[in-house]
């Protein structure tokens, strides 16, 4: 056995190569390209920070904070927050019930929530759109458009919230709860003091999996609102479509920074939450 050990280590390192390659080609390289375009002039290709200056200076005599660009960011942020909160509000009770119920076939129950993901999401969004049209709230007003966008995001991203939350709750050691009961805690306070804090890593991981895509998934907002409600992803797409790669790259880079900040502020990089969430952050 002792002989086999170094060999095993060696092969483990080898196992990381595919992922490292993947990372280099699909994560690092595009990032480098984005940074390159963010700091060069689109016409001459020279180094410049003008793209950032342009991004933050308003258009047509308006300041940045009055510009449609800023409003788009605020709007995406609002949609994102709303979608995340709603997803959590729906997903947590569901996950909690499945994790704690006495049914034998929990996997089967869980499957009910995952099966919709097997249908292509554009199809599902289209179906939802037709449904809203039939009810009569599709493309009615700006307020309804925002509502419909949030609805589409929640519809699409709900499983991404249910799964990590379910995994953490089901992994909570039952003896903690029993101890709490023994020491006189009621159901509610046991939940608030034991289950909720211990399921935090699952919540965080669910939040990041819903929040980030709902800032940028413009396919949903475009379909759900007849291209009315604009989110930051749609703006980036337009930049690249219209041969303004530099402005698009700047926006993408700023969005990335914003996401990094949010993750950092919510403790996404904490060593502690890392250990707690081990195995759950990837469900």
């Amino acid at each position: 056995m002792t002989k086999a050990k170094p060999k095993l280590r060696f092969s483990r390192k080898l196992l990381a190569i595919p992922y490292a390659l993947f990372l280099a080609i699909f994560v690092v390289a595009p990032l480098v390209i984005i940074v390159y375009y963010a700091f060069t002039n689109g016409d001459t290709g020279e180094f410049t920070v003008d793209n950032f200056v342009n991004f933050f200076s308003g258009t047509g005599g308006q300041s940045f904070f009055e510009s449609s660009r800023f409003k788009t960011i605020v709007q995406s942020f609002f949609i994102s927050v709303m979608s995340t909160v709603l997803c959590l509000a729906i997903a947590y009770p569901v996950a909690y019930i499945i994790a704690t119920c006495k049914v034998k076939n929990k996997a089967g129950l869980l499957l009910l929530f995952i099966v919709p993901m097997w249908v292509n999401f554009v199809l599902r969004i289209n179906a939802l759109k037709e449904l809203l049209d039939w009810i009569g709230i599709y493309n009615k007003s700006d307020e309804w458009n925002i509502f419909n966008t949030v609805l589409g995001m929640v519809y699409d991203f709900l499983p991404f919230m249910i799964l990590p939350v379910y995994t953490t709750i089901s992994k909570i050691d039952k003896s903690y709860l029993e101890a709490a009961r023994d020491l006189g805690a009621g159901g509610a306070s046991a939940f608030l003091k034991i289950t909720l804090p211990l399921s935090k890593p699952g919540i965080m991981s669910g939040v990041s999996m819903v929040f980030l895509p709902s800032m940028t998934n413009y396919v949903i907002s475009n379909y759900m609102t007849f291209n009315h409600t604009k989110i930051i992803g749609a703006f980036i797409d337009e930049c690249f479509k219209n041969d303004l790669w530099n402005l698009g790259s700047v926006t993408a880079l700023l969005l990335l920074t914003l996401m990094f900040l949010i993750t950092w502020l919510t403790g996404g990089f904490d060593a502690q939450s890392e250990t707690n969430a081990r195995g759950t952050s990837l469900w």
Binding site: T59, S68, R69, K230, D243
Partner: peptide, 18 residues
């Protein structure tokens, strides 16, 4: 051209943001 394209793009953002 490059200049007109940039201006057209920001005009477009303003128009399509409801």
């Amino acid at each position: 051209d490059y200049d007109a394209n940039s201006r057209a793009n920001s005009m477009w953002s303003d128009i399509t943001f409801f």
